[in-house]
């Protein structure tokens, strides 16, 4: 009876997480032609930044102890800092490399971050209880929805609108859009490459931190491997959305979230364990029909 609203909120909140992760990847791809596979590890890093560094099974809150009003900006800054640092120490030195070489070094960077986390925190998943009260259900349109789902949906909308405003209304936003379309031309007009790229990494890292906060609240677990899973889905979303297209990344993130919730809800019971196989079959079908993605950026070629 209340299954439909339930499904709707499930789909929107899952899609929101995917959309935010996909945005983080699309932003970097836009300005650098880099598919940054370390993005998932930024998420994991932010999750572990919440707890005291130790290999103990029980997680002790560290930054996670701070009240939300401090914790949220702190973690967003940490995410931005990690991403900016990785640009400064790794990708900045590869500006003239091929996209494949950059992609491979992003894998390498991801492994370095992951193994550092393993070393410091051990490989055992730890229970982390951040804002547990947010998982209490509230009742909306006859369905019982965890408050967190509503927060996730609202957060995603705020993030998307804020990012759109930043890109549309500010100087740095204009420069980022120009650089994403034609980096050399933007530089010829005086746009500073380093400023734009650092800005994109900072935004991308902050998005990773937002995803980290949501995931850890939702699952209550800190796991070194948690970045890989979401990175895969987010990457697929950016490809389906048309690499480099920000609206495409958001739309595709929601689309994948919805598809995965619908498959979960409507597949026969014995087929449910293979949900992801069905999901990826859909992905392949989309890419066969539209190899450039559903929302490939408009061509800048003149009409005449």
């Amino acid at each position: 009876m209340n299954a439909i609203p339930q499904l709707f909120f499930d789909a929107m909140s899952l899609g929101g997480i995917y959309a935010m992760a996909a945005l983080g990847i699309a932003l970097i791809f836009g300005v650098m032609n880099l598919v940054n596979f370390a993005h998932g590890e930024y998420i994991a890093f932010c999750v572990f930044a919440l707890i005291v560094p130790s290999t103990d099974a029980v997680a002790v809150m560290f930054i996670g102890k701070a009240p939300a009003i401090l914790l949220i900006p702190m973690l967003l800054s940490i995410g931005a800092l990690v991403a900016v640092a990785s640009e400064f120490f790794v990708f900045r030195h590869m500006r003239n490399s091929t996209p494949v070489a950059m992609m491979i070094s992003s894998f390498a960077l991801g492994f370095v971050i992951q193994n550092t986390l393993l070393l410091v925190y051990s490989s055992r998943p730890k229970a982390v209880s951040l804002w547990p009260e947010l998982n209490k259900p509230v009742s909306i349109v006859g369905a019982s929805i965890p408050l967190l789902q509503i927060i996730v949906i609202v957060t995603t909308l705020i993030v998307v609108v804020a990012l759109a405003l930043l890109l549309k209304r500010t100087r740095i936003g204009l420069e980022m859009r120009a650089a994403a379309e034609n980096f050399t031309m933007a530089r010829l007009l005086g746009v500073r490459a380093n400023v734009v790229i650092t800005g994109a990494f900072a935004l991308s890292g902050a998005l990773a931190a937002a995803v980290a906060l949501i995931m850890v609240t939702q699952t209550g677990v800190a796991d070194v491997r948690m970045g890989g899973q979401i990175m895969l889905v987010a990457f697929i979303a950016t490809v389906i959305g048309g690499l480099g297209s920000l609206p495409g990344a958001v739309a595709a993130g929601f689309l994948i979230g919805a598809a995965s919730v619908i498959l979960q809800g409507f597949l026969p019971l014995e087929a449910r364990p293979f949900r992801d196989a069905f999901l990826y079959t859909l992905v392949i079908a989309v890419l066969l029909l539209k190899p450039d993605g559903l929302f490939a950026p408009r061509s800048s070629k003149p009409r005449v």
């Binding site: 120009a178 379309e181 050399t184 031309m185 933007a186 007009l189 746009v191 408009r298 800048s300 003149p302």
Partner: peptide, 16 residues
């Protein structure tokens, strides 16, 4: 020309 095709005419003028 290397116009920014996804930007508006005025935004093109403002980039520089």
């Amino acid at each position: 020309r290397e116009i920014f095709g996804t930007l508006s005419v005025e935004e093109n003028l403002r980039v520089g």
